[in-house]
Computed example of a mutant assay.
Amino acid sequence: MNFQRHRTSLLAVAGTALALSLTACQSDDASGEPAPAATSSATGKAADGGQAGTSGPTDTADPAHAEASKGSTDSGGSGGSAGSTGEQATAATRVCTARDVAVTAATQGGAPYTHLVLTAKNTSGRSCRLAGAPHIQFLESHKQDVPAVAKSKPATPVVLAAGAPAYALVKLSDGGVDEDNEPVSAFSLVLEGDSAVIAVRAPGSGVAVDPAKALTGYWTPELRNGADDF
């Protein structure tokens, strides 16, 4: 009887201890031991996630930013390019004056020398627009400007960048011995839109000019075959 009671007491104590142990385990599961492991895992993910979060948004934001920057640059570049060489720049560019260019003359072809090539080089250090045809007077006895040939007129105004040249072909005579040619060692030239007179030295020892046959082409970026045949 005492043994049975003692055994029952032991079982009761053991049951109580087991219940306490289970309660403690449940308490640990709820708020105890696993928490550090979960915290460590979360910290690890937070660190990884921080890098991913940093690189992720950076990867997402940077391309967008780069694309936006590229678009802005491309747009600006295109605008700059259009502003520098397009029609707006041509319309806004100031007209070249005698101070902006240096004009030289050279014979074209061989003897008899019937044509000159005029070169106007922009020496101003900034762009200017070379309009129209050169206004040329070869002789003091002939005050009229040499007539300009319409077919040599370029479609758009010639804009000279700093250091760039433009050309005009000038007919002196037909090359005939029976023409009324007169020797010319220098002549006057005025640019369209300017009033200053430029003195141009004739090449070599001078040229022979027939005032009745003289013609001039318009200023062009280059001498064009066909359009300048006169």
Rank of each mutant, 00 (worst) to 15 (best):
A12F: 15
W219D: 03
L139R: 04
R99N: 09
T39M: 11
K171I: 01
S152V: 09
L18G: 09
A35W: 03
Q137Y: 02
E222F: 13
G53M: 07
E182I: 07
N225P: 13
V190D: 01
P165S: 12
E179M: 01
S31R: 13
E182C: 12
S185G: 11
G110P: 00
S40C: 10
T107H: 11
A66V: 15
K213L: 10
T220E: 07
A186P: 00
Y113N: 11
C128H: 00
R224M: 12
L10Q: 14
A214Y: 06
S78H: 08
K70V: 13
A98P: 02
A214Q: 00
L215M: 09
S21Y: 15
G83M: 02
D178F: 08
D180C: 05
M1L: 15
T8E: 15
I198Q: 00
T73Q: 11
S31I: 02
P203F: 04
E222T: 13
F3V: 09
A91M: 04
P157L: 01
H142G: 00
A133M: 09
A52F: 14
V101I: 09
G56V: 14
H115M: 08
S84M: 11
S9Q: 12
A166F: 13
I198T: 06
S84C: 06
D145Q: 07
V184Y: 02
E87C: 02
L215D: 05
R224S: 13
A14F: 11
A105E: 05
D229A: 15
T119H: 00
T8C: 06
S124L: 04
F138L: 02
